[in-house]
Write a protein that binds this DNA or RNA. Sequence first.
DNA 1: TTTGCATTTAACCAAATGGTTAAACCATTC
DNA 2: GAATGGTTTAACCATTTGGTTAAATGCAAA
Lengths: 205, 205
Amino acid sequence: MKQLKDTSAEERILEAAKVVFMKYGLYGARMQDIADTAGINKALLHYYFRNKEKMFDKVFEGALQKYFQSVDVFGDTTLPIKERIFKYIDNIVSFLSEYPQMTMFIIKEISINPEMFKEKLQALKRGRTVRFIQALEEEMSAGKLRKIDPVMFMINLHSLCTYPFIAAPLFKHALKANGKDYEKDFSPEKLKQSAKNFVELTLGK
Amino acid sequence: MKQLKDTSAEERILEAAKVVFMKYGLYGARMQDIADTAGINKALLHYYFRNKEKMFDKVFEGALQKYFQSVDVFGDTTLPIKERIFKYIDNIVSFLSEYPQMTMFIIKEISINPEMFKEKLQALKRGRTVRFIQALEEEMSAGKLRKIDPVMFMINLHSLCTYPFIAAPLFKHALKANGKDYEKDFSPEKLKQSAKNFVELTLGK
DNA sequence: TTTGCATTTAACCAAATGGTTAAACCATTC
DNA sequence: GAATGGTTTAACCATTTGGTTAAATGCAAA
């Protein structure tokens, strides 16, 4: 089992909890596994974070915070629409390059236990997405953007930016067959460019 | 001849195992939970499927089988390229409409325990994807399709078809704010149409 | 040096969990 | 009716797991 060191115990525990919870989820994660990964005794976990759920909460809250930070740019009304979209692409792809498991973690845990996170989710969104969709519709009506289904556009945009990270293990496997180097196809820069192409292609310029 | 009950115990167990394993994964799932869901005694599980891992194997094998069935059409060289793509879109979207959690289940379990599934994955793919990408490249060279990065195209195509199901819980939450009925935006038919538009747009006609 | 406090540990504990066993049930066959 | 064999169950068992406790350690202030 991999160990983390060279930081305070509390930090090491949180970092280890992040790793283990992301991999196994709330139910699948084992306290002993977290302790081993952090390189400390199991009792320490309970000293710093009363119990498993409280520890999970800390980890999940941090994850949500960081995740929704990428989406916040949609609400920045000082920027023109397309720039907001491009910034979102840069944000989310860079973020997921660092934490490729984040999307699955958040979605899985929410779908397992929706009640647990209702308030937290409610606090994070304040109609950002819905308002942005309205802004899209307005520009389409004004003839500044091609008229398409704005909701489907948003879904597609998120899909292009997010799924490549989720499915990376499968893709790598499916594409590994001849001598070609497919790692480069997952480079963040290529993904960003591809998503931006999609935006230009569908919204017109 | 033995009379089939409308649902035999064994079938009910497998069905319950599917539900519970998909939700919690191998480590997170509890045998008692599976037994309760199936409405039988816990010992029955071990009677039909020796142990947890063997039961999981059965479930996972079935999942893989069904999942890769959707992709098989890429290898059907009797069909023109674009028709293969369109058929894949129809296949995968219809399949995921029925089992929205399938993608996450497969990817999660593989990423947790890659060794466990190496052989099974190896058996399922025989360069299908790689050969299809070569076919794409040939048609591009022949001027029949617009010249784009074929690997990125495949990644994008899968993303558009798959991610909407994965993220449905999040999307529904993010979009639920005014009186609009957003359920229709997740209709399989709309998704298929949107993915096909993407294909036409990027590969040219 | 000693006091006080945060940090750390080994040793436990009760409950949950995967798994076993032996017996009961029940329809069919002899 | 007895034997057969697949099906079902309650009662167990050993291990794992989340959580507790009391004592040890280190360290900074008095």
